[in-house]
């Protein structure tokens, strides 16, 4: 059997999450085809063709796919996916949006956010906000799966030389249309793929105080995140939220500043390689998962840290 991987991108560059999905596809086994759907996305297809382990790239370049509308992408993937045993997408807001649609059109189950491949029919996935891990087996002939990117080490971005075929399939439901988007602009790395993440919680007090985290982040080349408490308090926008209801991250270094460590937050970062916690409350649950804890007032400790890096 063969595996179809749906590429995540912004029409200009391939999102690194796709390299992790390809890694999951390799564990399942079989030839890997990557489907790139977008508008003016030829460069993305060329990039996907260089990824390790990719046998073929299909490029569907059409206005209908520019904004990844689920109605159009869901139908395209259902049609293209008819020839494959497994259809994989990243468990990002794009993948989660269209993959269940594709599965329903194919009358098969969808398996969400797998964190491990046991065999071609059996997978592990977190349930109950990461408080339990289920091993699930799917009886359907075709499997539609979303993959938690941080659970799989990405394949090499270079070295492959797959052929790129253009795909002349246009699905345009005209039921939905794109109105606009507001994307957070930042020179810092993307939260989900950064090597270092520094996050602030309710202890930050207000949004302006996040400035001290930005300073440290810029010295370390880190992304800045936040706990749900900080988002709910209006300190920072929701797209900075790390946790079960926000982004799942697993960087080499995660620094939790003024974060108590609610289970909801831990679910989003506990797979990080090294965890540092800075909190003045020595009883805070975050210290139970931290490799290095510092019991201190963050407004003294963070500027001091900044000066010593």
């Amino acid at each position: 059997m063969s595996v179809l991987v749906y590429a995540e991108h912004d029409n200009a560059a391939l999102n690194k999450a796709t390299l992790s999905v390809i890694a999951a596809a390799k564990e399942i086994g079989g030839d890997i085809t990557v489907l790139v759907a977008g508008k003016g996305c030829g460069a993305v297809a060329e990039e996907a063709a260089k990824a390790e382990g990719v046998a073929k790239v299909l490029c569907a370049d059409n206005d209908a796919y520019e904004h990844q509308l689920a109605e159009n992408i869901g139908e395209l993937v259902a049609e293209v996916g008819a020839d494959y045993g497994h259809i994989l997408a990243a468990a990002t807001t794009t993948g989660k949006n269209f993959a269940p649609r594709t599965a329903a059109l194919l009358d098969v189950a969808q398996i969400s956010e797998i964190s491990d491949v046991v065999d071609a029919d059996t997978f592990k996935r977190p349930i109950y906000a990461g408080n339990a891990i289920a091993t699930v087996k799917c009886a359907d002939a075709k499997k539609v799966i979303t993959v938690r990117p941080t659970s799989f080490d990405p394949v090499a971005a270079e070295g492959g030389s797959a052929a790129v075929e253009s795909l002349d399939v246009v699905k345009n439901s005209e039921l939905s249309s794109f109105v606009g988007e507001e994307l957070a602009k930042s020179d810092r790395p993307e939260l989900a793929s950064a090597e270092i993440v520094i996050s602030g919680g309710r202890g930050m007090g207000n949004g302006d105080n996040f400035e001290i985290l930005y300073k440290v982040a810029d010295k370390l080349g880190a992304a800045v995140g936040a706990s749900r408490a900080a988002v709910d308090a209006g300190f920072v926008p929701n797209d900075m939220q790390v946790g079960q209801t926000g982004k799942i991250v697993a960087p080499n270094l995660y620094m939790a500043v003024g974060i108590s460590g609610a289970i909801q937050h831990l679910a989003g970062m506990k797979d990080s390689k090294v965890i540092v916690a800075i909190n003045k409350d020595e009883e805070a649950p975050i210290f139970q998962v931290a490799d290095y804890g510092l019991v201190a007032d963050l407004f003294e400790a963070v500027p001091e840290l900044d000066s010593k890096l």
Binding site: A134, V136, K137, G293, V295
Partner: peptide
Amino acid sequence: VTIEKVENPPERQAGIIVGSV
């Protein structure tokens, strides 16, 4: 989909408390 098994997630061990920045 059949659920074959449900387990606790791997526990993370607490590390050390450092004394200074």
